[in-house]
Each structure stands twice: as structure tokens, then as C-alpha cells.
Amino acid sequence: MAAGGDHGSPDSYRSPLASRYASPEMCFVFSDRYKFRTWRQLWLWLAEAEQTLGLPITDEQIQEMKSNLENIDFKMAAEEEKRLRHDVMAHVHTFGHCCPKAAGIIHLGATSCYVGDNTDLIILRNALDLLLPKLARVISRLADFAKERASLPTLGFTHFQPAQLTTVGKRCCLWIQDLCMDLQNLKRVRDDLRFRGVKGTTGTQASFLQLFEGDDHKVEQLDKMVTEKAGFKRAFIITGQTYTRKVDIEVLSVLASLGASVHKICTDIRLLANLKEMEEPFEKQQIGSSAMPYKRNPMRSERCCSLARHLMTLVMDPLQTASVQWFERTLDDSANRRICLAEAFLTADTILNTLQNISEGLVVYPKVIERRIRQELPFMATENIIMAMVKAGGSRQDCHEKIRVLSQQAASVVKQEGGDNDLIERIQVDAYFSPIHSQLDHLLDPSSFTGRASQQVQRFLEEEVYPLLKPYESVMKVKAELCL
């Protein structure tokens, strides 16, 4: 049975990233139509530049190519590739079939990587351009969430054990800070992308030097003109047959890092959902379990974690691919890159769409948070109580021993009897502590235990987050809708 299948058929496997999760716009960027249309555009740009620099290419040939950029006979191309065992030459023939007058000058002087690699770089750039505003929107939604809850005390956790208090907004800023680093890295790697350009079979530009009869300047002009037509500021000066596969490492490393950030955020949300302090959106008709109707599973956060793990592992592909590119190139890269580049971007696209949807509907339960604080705060307040007693004339050592005994009794009630923490009640009825009984409410005010959390939130948002989001103001209103 021949390899390949009808990918629109229910009898043929289709990647869930495309069929179930990723956005239509990201799927289109990695589609065959987008790819092969870009090949034709690159052939047109090459012909236009070659004509401008004096090669015998007519206006009629150029116009014929322009008129057929979208006229792609995919069936013919597939048949040609089956016959020739070469995808680029299959599309040269297919393009030439609908451009008979231009057929002889299509791909003039070029090698397969002229269309293959340059198209990949265009796709990487455009895919990054799709991700950047999506990530900015996630940051914006979380920034709104953090600002609104900047002063809401909550129990902090280290080692997932109760620690000092923080605020809900401050905790959210930990998430935002990681995503801001990801946004900066995505922008950097996007701006650092260079075009492969017009380089020939081993990167020496020998074929173009021959076409222009040894004119170095025209060869350099050709490279520059096509690079500018493709919208790049610069091209690699040095290439082998391909652009260095280190570029793929750079791009997928940034995406993998984004995956790590999203995994951490969504894990926190899942843990908070278990504590009943916070939940992701839950639709009115949504079913959490087929057997347990009360369940409210954090399905979206779980999906993000599941896909983020996949995204983090994909960076190993370009690392290994770059390491086995012998001399000017081997074909070890080809099949692998067809999979890992598309999957990385479709996965990143999915987790950003999902995280935006989550961040637009996060639900906080202040009463649950308050109750958990009441359970733990008495123990945390013991040092403040000791200091207040010393100020009232008591002995630190005597007070410490009193607190120690009462704390152990209260802990026994919590752990052995399943009761509430009654340390404060014990202190309130103990005559030894009568000098500070009137101060206990103040000493137990949760806001006095959150330090500068709310001020940190305000400063972080104003100095770091809002300036970073400013270039994306025009796209901030787009909502994230999930079908599944």
C-alpha cells in the first residue's frame, strides 16, 4: 500500500493539533497551500530580480507567473513527485505547466533550498508574528487579574506546605514575570531571523556568478533584492546548502521555554482548584465526569500541561538535527523538520489560546482563602504575639514557653481530632496574655502579614508589564474561544 493518505478522510490519521486544537490561522501558515504558494512567490521574486539585473526574462513571463501564483494543481504535483521522487522539481514542473512561456526560467540558477529553506524562514517569521500578540493578550488578562487582587491576602506555599502570606495578585505576578520573559525572547528570536537568500547549491553562489558572467556586484544585488522582497532586513552571508540548523534550535528553545512557563502556571491553577481557592472557567453544560456528576475538573489547565510537556520535548529534535548536518548538509534534517517545526508552533498556539481562555474567566473564592488563612495564621502570628507581650512588660522566655504549650495543644486538636485551630481562643482565655487581649485582632490582621506584596504588584505592572504590552494595544480586544 502506498504511503500517505487522504487526510480529510475519517479513515486516515490526522494530527489532533490540526484537527482538534490549533487555530485556523496557525494551521494555514503550515498548510501545503501556504507552503507551495510561497515557493511560487519566491520563484517570481527571483525572476523579477534577475530581470532587473539584466537576464533575458520578459515582462510577459513575469506576468504569467504572477497570474498563476494561486493556480496550484495539487493532484498534478503529487503525481509528479511520485514520478520524480523530488518535491521541488515536482512543483517546478507543475508551475511550468500553467506558465508555459515562463517554464524555462522558473528556478533559474537556484537549488531546492532556495524555495525550501527560504519558505521555512518566512513561515517561522509569520508563525512567530501570530504567537506574539496571543502571548501579549494572556499577559494582559493576567495583569488585569493581578491588579484587581493585588491586596487580597492568601496563604503562600513553599514545598506545598503553608508559608508566609502573600497576595493573590502577587502570586499571579510570578506567572506574568515568566511570560514577559517569554514574550521578550519570542520577539528577540523573531527579529534575529535572517533570510537564507540566493546562495546556490553549497552556499557559494557559483551558479549565479556564472549567470551574471562573473559580476560579483550583481550577485550581491540579486541576494539583497530577493531578501528585501521577502520582507527581511538581512540575509546570511555564510550558508551551506541550507541555512544553519542552529536557527531551528533557537526558535524551538524559546517555544519550549514558553511551554515550561505555561505548565507551571496551569499546575498552580490545578492545585488551587483542589484547594477550592480558584477555578478555571466551567461552562453551564460542561460535564466533569461521566460517573461523578459533582466533579469540576480543571480540564483546560490539564490540557495545557499535557501539550506543554510535548512542546518542551520537541527542542531535542533540532538539537540532534543540527549535530548531524555533515559538511554542507545531509538530508537527516528533512523529514524531522517537516514534523517538529509545525508541531512546535501548533502546540504553542494551542496552549496560548487555551491559557487566554482560562485567564479571561478565572474565578476566585475569597471566603475559602480566608478560612485557610484562619487555619494557619495563628501559628504564624506567634512571633508577633511574643513581641507584643514583651512590649507590655512580659518575659520573652516565659511567653515563648506559654505559646509553645498552647500551640501544641491547638495542633493536637487540628491533627488528632480534625478540629479547627483554636490557638487564639486559648490565648484569649489565658490570664497571662490579658495585657494584649485587646491587640489580638490587630495582630491577626492578614494584611499585616503580606509585606509589600501589593506595592510590588503595582510597581511591576507599571514599570515592566504595561510598557512591554504597549506595541500590542491594537490587538488586545480579541477574545479566545474554545470549541473543545
Rank of each mutant, 00 (worst) to 15 (best):
A3S: 14
P10V: 15
P10F: 14
P16E: 10
P24Q: 14
E25F: 02
T38A: 07
W39T: 08
R40K: 04
Q41F: 13
P56N: 10
I57Q: 01
I57T: 02
E60C: 11
E60L: 12
N71A: 08
N71K: 12
D73E: 09
D73A: 07
K75A: 14
K82Q: 13
L84P: 01
R85C: 04
A90P: 00
A90V: 08
V92R: 00
A102I: 08
A103I: 10
A103S: 09
A103F: 09
L108Q: 01
G109H: 05
S112Q: 04
G116E: 01
D117F: 02
T119G: 12
T119P: 00
I122C: 09
L124I: 12
L124E: 11
A127E: 09
L128C: 13
L130N: 15
L130M: 13
L131E: 15
L131I: 10
L132F: 10
A136G: 12
R137L: 15
R137I: 15
R137P: 11
L142V: 10
P153T: 05
T154R: 01
L155F: 03
G156W: 01
T158P: 01
L165E: 01
G169Q: 01
I176L: 13
Q177R: 02
D182A: 01
L183W: 07
K187G: 12
K187M: 09
V189R: 08
D191I: 09
L193D: 05
L193Q: 08
R194L: 07
G200I: 00
T204Q: 15
A206N: 11
E213H: 15
D216Y: 12
T227F: 06
T227M: 07
A235T: 13
F236D: 02
I238F: 00
Q241Y: 01
L252E: 03
S253N: 13
S253H: 14
L255M: 13
A256Y: 02
S257Q: 10
V262Q: 04
K264Y: 03
I265T: 13
L275D: 08
K276S: 05
G288T: 03
S290Y: 03
R296Y: 04
S306V: 03
T313L: 08
Q320I: 12
Q320A: 10
T321H: 00
D333G: 06
A335E: 02
R337F: 03
R338F: 03
A344Y: 12
T350L: 11
I358C: 15
K367C: 07
R371S: 02
P378C: 04
T382M: 15
I386A: 03
S395V: 03
R396Y: 05
Q397N: 10
H400G: 04
Q408R: 12
E417M: 11
N421I: 08
N421K: 04
F433Y: 08
S434T: 13
Q439R: 07
D445C: 14
F449P: 03
L461V: 13
E462S: 13
L468F: 07
L469P: 03
P471G: 15
E473I: 13
E473R: 13
V475R: 15
L484T: 15
